[in-house]
Design a protein around this nucleic acid. Structure first.
Lengths: 177, 177
DNA sequence: TTAGATATATGCATCATGCATGGACATCAA
DNA sequence: TTGATGTCCATGCATGATGCATATATCTAA
């Protein structure tokens, strides 16, 4: 039983991930570019170093990636007011539109996949997903990356956020002792 | 509620897919190479054209990919007995070992993620996953690709197989009319 | 036998990437 | 203030996976 569940669940995750990645790349962006847009949509004013960390790319590669996205008019670079070394990144208007489109397509894909379930089944799946997801998170950076393609504005009671707050609270308790 | 489920489930799929891909690339293989090994582990005697189709790569790129894997001793190429144009691909002993290792790591990753659920919850998740997965399959080729990283020998009552058989049966009924 | 289809292979250009390095700026200590 | 060290961004260079166009070998059907 267990092995069969593992395979089925793994296959499902793979299938969904394939479809989602296909969505977000449907605008002529390579995966790393699409993910950068995802991150910048959620966390504007990132630096190149932070972005490099978030998308698991070398700094140099991220510099070029940013240059490409800037050339295509999706992001804007500006100098930091407080630190002359830092370049602040932000989605342009076109970039924000692209990001919204990415999230819309992803949401639609997921909706289609999940609408075969009844209301009760959806509730159950939400509960189970939340539980598994919570256990899967390694640290704050990982949590941030896992949410990189989410549609955050509509994510009520985000399980990732909840889990991280729970841990932070536990951490605070520990440090008080 | 629905939107939150969509996000949580999408994030979970992404997190698992990330981890699984990290597993299968932990042997110095690029993603396409790792997937080729996965396919050949399940379906020996594929041709280059079939493999190219399975991993969504151009024929030319697949020729080079196969050459790389052959150089590294993971696959063997042999001429077809019946068709002089065809190159038959098969995992070498080392390749089979690599494939087994990939599946082991993936299985372990999934097991860890799912062991936080109770027995009942696992049964429920298996049922829901199967239902969603069945709806997600587009055609036979897609089904084949979705299973590309599965540990097939231990996949009892494979939901993908079941779904495709169901469809084939339906197809036969139609053609009889 | 010949024309067209199919399967593999190769020359060439492109492009994302990593490594090594350089340059600008910040921070801290003397 | 100055100098040392660390941080952040940028760039030259090489690598490697990929696609397109094309060549070669083989099969199939007329």
């Amino acid at each position: 039983m267990t092995a069969a569940l593992e395979n089925a669940f793994g296959a499902l995750a793979l299938a969904l991930s394939d479809d989602i990645h296909a969505c977000i790349q449907s605008n002529g962006l390579v995966p790393s570019e699409a993910e950068a847009v995802g991150h910048l949509g959620h966390a504007p004013d990132m630096t190149i170093t932070h972005l490099a960390d978030a998308i698991s790319l070398s700094h140099a590669a991220t510099v070029r990636l940013v240059a490409r996205l800037e050339d295509r008019g999706f992001i804007e670079r500006s100098a930091s007011q407080t630190d002359g070394r830092i370049v602040v990144l932000r989605l342009s208007e076109n970039g924000a539109e692209l990001h919204a489109s990415q999230m819309r397509q992803r949401q639609e894909k997921l909706r289609t996949a999940l609408e075969t379930l009844s209301e009760d089944e959806q509730d159950m799946l939400a509960k189970l997903s939340t539980k598994v997801l919570g256990e899967l998170l390694r640290d704050e950076n990982h949590a941030f990356r896992v949410c990189r393609l989410c549609n955050r504005p509509v994510c009520e009671n985000c399980p990732v956020e909840t889990e991280m707050m729970k841990r932070e609270a536990a951490q605070n308790w520990l440090s008080v002792e």
